[in-house]
Design a protein around this nucleic acid. Sequence first.
RNA 1: GGAGAAAUGGCAGAGUGGUCGAAUGCGGCAGUCUUGAAAACUGUUGAGGGUCACACCUCCGGGGGUUCGAAUCCCUCUUUCUCCGCCA
Length: 423
Amino acid sequence: MLQLQTLRDNKDTIIAALQKRNIDAAPIVDSVLLLDEKRRSTQTELDNTLAESNKLSKEIGNLYKTGKAQEANVLKEKTGTLKEDSKRFGDELNAITEQLQQLLYQIPNVPHESVPAGSTEDDNEEVFKEGDIPVLKEGSLPHWELAKKYDIIDFELGVKIAGAGFPVYKGKGARLQRALITYFLDKNTEAGYTEMQVPHMVNEASGYGTGQLPDKEGQMYHIGADDLYLIPTAEVPVTNIFRDEIVNEQDFPICMTAYTPCFRREAGSYGAHVRGLNRLHQFDKVEIVRVEHPEKSFDALDGMVEHVKNILRELKLPYRILRLCGGDLGFTAALTYDFEVFSTAQDRWLEISSVSNFETYQANRLKLRYKDENGKSQLAHTLNGSALALPRVLAGILENYQTAEGIQIPEVLVPYCGFDMIK
RNA sequence: GGAGAAAUGGCAGAGUGGUCGAAUGCGGCAGUCUUGAAAACUGUUGAGGGUCACACCUCCGGGGGUUCGAAUCCCUCUUUCUCCGCCA
């Protein structure tokens, strides 16, 4: 959520920047500013009314104490209209505040200056590319075929138990999953991220805190009986650790990592590109989350990008990094780098990580602040990234590491797997 | 699931109708002392709105109510603790 003060001070710049997202924010920003003014004037009226009745109440109290009940009763009568007024102003204020809040929820984050203009993923800017794309021999298979051939992932079994998009990993497939999770967590903790285990369901307040609500309401599984949401990413519970918190400036950087399953309804996204592991309702992901000083957050973002690069180098997977264009940028992000691995047998790039800086957008919703050197509360910056999302990494490994003899296990994973080949 | 108790500032903990944004202790910060540190002493120390700055307003788990006036009384929800039951 954008800060009102910033919106007041930089209205035109913000509207101009939001054009990169291909939206004309002018009308909504105008309504916000108008409502804000109304809010403040109503607040003042309410405050004045309350101040007066506070004063009267004190007088009445003093009169009673000095035994002047008669005079007190006279004053009491005057409080009637004040009460009505304050009730009226109060209700009005609540309504305006609610309205204002709803409008603010609808304005996405302001893209960083480096975000390229554009409307679709085709306009994303490739900023880095590394690793050799293996040339596969005749008869090489996409991962869903490999999964079947070596009996390591059973998609049909998942359909039977839950539905499409809930694969069952078997034997060495399951072990490889676990190996990847442990390997990622080890890499992250080595880099200074503290490992966390967090709830896989969150309440409504958490959903609002990180911005999944109300924007992506339909993308999360909702448990009606208890009003909880299955997490679409560990970002939600991990970042919400710091909801309503004021941290010390010297606590920065706050670095956390967590493995969780992720649940996404993926409503409406069916088609040729969702085969196999490409798009699932439940998948595993190891996430890194940072809370940062505003001046350091973009350095931190670069650091996170380097960190993910290192992991992909170790796995020896060909990948590229994209800077998302305005049209593809997530609602809450100011700047996002997507990592994609090349899936050789499918001959396409698969997104495996998304690293973002949210600046104060989430922090404002979360009320995540820090004390600056003058002792004043300031909003912190939040960032997160996948390090990494499992299924597509797995798809990349299966396809790129396939040989006539079987699937080779990347060297760094062998100690975690206990085998070096899936035959 | 049943019965009871409780929810106050970073923490502990007082406060049962007005002078309470809230005693006291610990912690934090600043200072005195000290070569430095510790101890001791002194001062300071919640959040938000509002204002050029003051004033002023709101917040004692959430919501509603009683009252001229509520941390304090009533209703309700949530959470925590204790006991019983069930159970990984």
